[in-house]
């Protein structure tokens, strides 16, 4: 016999500063393998976007092709999603952001999409300092085609079949810093705390954010001999700093020791706090960042953290002096050149 209990009103869901609950940032059910690192990254994106109070409708999620590029379907269902062709997301995103500067672009790519087929487009995106968060979900292999090496796989890393990778990896972070990206870091999908803080800082940054997130492929690259496995990462991850983030809208004053912590003020007034684990490292110094990344390769470390931040370089849309009004929604009266311009143009032809 059932006993009835008086119904308690459900507690009001927690909401963020724009009145949305975390559910408003969720997406469809993932179809990736159980334990895939990419799912953890989706979770961090959801949390960070929720906590930062970003309006989901303003977000556009361009992606390429591959397991990683499928993941935008699994977070932020109220945002616009654009699955482009393999490797071309950087170009598509550039076009979209130039046409509508009010869009917040969160691009998701993989190591194959970025470092092989799309490397030309990636390189030129990094040069532009377009306002975009570009995430590489980096597992060193092509998952959807059943586990071939990608160009970020380390030399000597082995496949399950025993095949040994014989070429050196492309370090997408070193490349991004060299080329002009203004916020560059590496994290690990298993490092919840670090990735969470970096993701929030990424949202606060204006310009190109390039985050390479090592994200183990549980099906094809999580075995002994892989350098992108959970175990390898746990043993070899070498964090540069302890990353924490204080958003501008949370007016919290915390004392910190400038000797041990570097504080970077972001464009919107948010503060990125980096408690130094390496005394000499200063993430505003570009050459030092590149040198340190090269050292890490020689030592066989997987360096993580915020490698480079530059809040001074103007973004591509500012550099191009784009109008406030998106080109996409200009009224017909101004969509064509005015009479005076046409008269000048015709004069040139006589």
């Amino acid at each position: 016999m059932a006993t009835s209990t008086p119904e308690k009103p459900a507690p009001a869901p927690k909401t963020n500063r724009i009145g949305l609950s975390v559910l408003d940032y969720r997406g469809g059910k993932t179809t990736l393998c159980a334990g895939c690192g990419h799912n953890a990254i989706s979770e961090r994106i959801i949390d960070a976007m929720y906590e930062m109070g970003v309006s989901p409708e303003r977000v556009i999620k361009p992606s390429g092709i591959g397991c990683s590029s499928k993941s935008p379907a699994y977070f932020m269902g109220r945002s616009h999603s654009f699955n482009a062709v393999h490797g071309r997301m950087p170009s598509v995103a550039t076009g979209a952001v130039l046409a509508n500067r009010h869009l917040i672009a969160l691009g998701v790519s993989g190591d194959g999409d970025t470092a092989s087929i799309g490397v030309g487009q990636f390189i030129h995106l990094m040069r532009r300092n377009l306002p975009i968060i570009y995430i590489i979900e980096d597992n060193g292999v092509y998952g959807l085609t059943k586990g071939q090496f990608s160009a970020t796989a380390d030399m000597g890393s082995t496949l399950k079949t025993g095949v040994i990778n014989d070429l050196p990896p492309i370090d997408t972070c070193a490349m991004a810093i060299t080329l002009g990206a203004t916020f560059v870091g590496r994290s690990f999908s298993g490092d919840k705390k670090q990735l969470h803080a970096m993701m929030k800082a990424a949202i606060a940054h204006k310009g190109t954010v390039m985050l390479d997130v090592v994200s183990p492929c549980v099906t094809f690259n999580d075995h002994e001999g892989s350098t992108k496995s959970y175990k390898y990462m746990k043993d070899h991850e070498e964090p540069l700093q302890e990353v924490s983030f204080v958003p501008a809208f949370e007016d919290i004053a915390i004392d910190y020791d400038p000797g041990t912590t570097i504080e970077v003020t972001m464009h919107d007034g948010s503060r990125l706090r980096l408690r130094k684990l390496e005394e000499e490292y200063d993430p505003t110094k570009r050459i030092q960042a590149i040198t340190r990344l090269n050292e890490a390769h020689e030592k066989g470390e997987v360096l993580t953290g915020v490698f480079y931040v530059n809040s001074k370089t103007p973004t591509f849309v500012d550099l191009l002096n784009m109008t406030e009004e998106p080109l996409a929604t200009l009224p017909e009266s101004v969509v064509r050149p005015g009479r005076e311009v046409l008269e000048q143009v015709m004069e040139e032809l006589r």
Binding site: P62, F82, A84, V85, R88, S91, V92, A93, T94, G95, A96, V97, L98, A99, N100, L103, Q121, P326, L327, A328
Partner: peptide, 9 residues
């Protein structure tokens, strides 16, 4: 791809 991105927007 850039032209299509802009057109899409």
């Amino acid at each position: 791809n850039m032209a299509i991105g802009a057109a899409h927007a």
